[in-house]
């Protein structure tokens, strides 16, 4: 465990908490993509299936349970809460699950480290996490005026990915024999998806203006 990895995990947790708190406090999920949240839930469940038999550390186990729990709560709010569900922007959140899930499923069957069910599900979760933000980014672009908390949520998520890259660089330099090509390439693609958003986020911040994405 190094500081980059730790910072990444904390930022990830923070991003989820920012979102959950926003929904809880405002009783609104306007601007939030349910598709992205459900894809993240699928990512966590398929990746953390090993929770019960593959114990690595208390740290990891606690994070796994918290990620699954908090993301489930967000999905519950958006689908079931009597006031929150009315604010869901269904008409703009139209990205098709199948466009993301199908290629990731096929790719995880073709490119994986070992051919067994749990390894394939784990690989699928790595691929799916890389692209799960796309419905949210598309929704942001359609909504035009991005509210601060939604903007911060996406920014924190992107920052989390950036710290994971620093963590890999650090591990590669300090741990002999450490390599994880599949995770690295997926991670680089994932972080790349945020670059455009980052650019507009920083511009808006520098000019202390409200974040607006071009169409």
């Amino acid at each position: 465990m190094n500081l980059f990895r730790f910072a990444g995990d904390i930022l990830h947790l923070l991003s989820i908490l920012v979102l959950l708190l926003k929904i809880h406090a405002t009783k609104s999920c306007a601007g939030i993509s349910l598709k992205t949240q459900e894809l993240y839930l699928a990512v966590f469940i398929t990746r953390y299936l090993d929770l019960f038999w593959n114990f690595h550390s208390l740290y990891n186990s606690v994070f796994k349970v918290v990620y699954i729990g908090t993301t489930s709560m967000i999905v519950w709010y958006m689908r079931r809460h009597r006031n929150v569900k009315l604010t869901y922007d269904r008409d703009h959140d139209t990205f098709r699950y199948l466009f993301l899930v199908a290629p990731c499923a096929v790719l995880s069957l073709l490119i994986n480290a070992r051919y067994n069910l749990f390894e394939i599900l784990w690989t699928f979760s790595i691929y799916l996490e890389a692209v799960a933000i796309l419905p949210q980014l598309v929704l942001l672009q359609r909504t035009k005026n991005v509210d601060n908390l939604t903007g911060n949520y996406v920014f924190l998520l992107g920052l989390y990915r950036a710290f994971y890259i620093l963590n890999w660089v650090y591990r590669f330099a300090t741990e002999p024999g450490y390599s994880a090509w599949l995770v690295w390439i997926s991670g680089l693609i994932q972080t790349g998806l945020y670059l455009d958003f980052f650019y507009y986020y920083v511009q808006a911040w520098k000019q202390s203006k409200k974040l607006q994405l071009p169409s």
């Binding site: 593959n54 690595h56 990620y67 480290a113 070992r114 994971y164 995770v183």
Partner: peptide, 10 residues
């Protein structure tokens, strides 16, 4: 164990 090592991240 290589496969264990790569799964030490979240």
């Amino acid at each position: 164990n290589k496969s264990k090592k790569k799964k030490d991240e979240l």
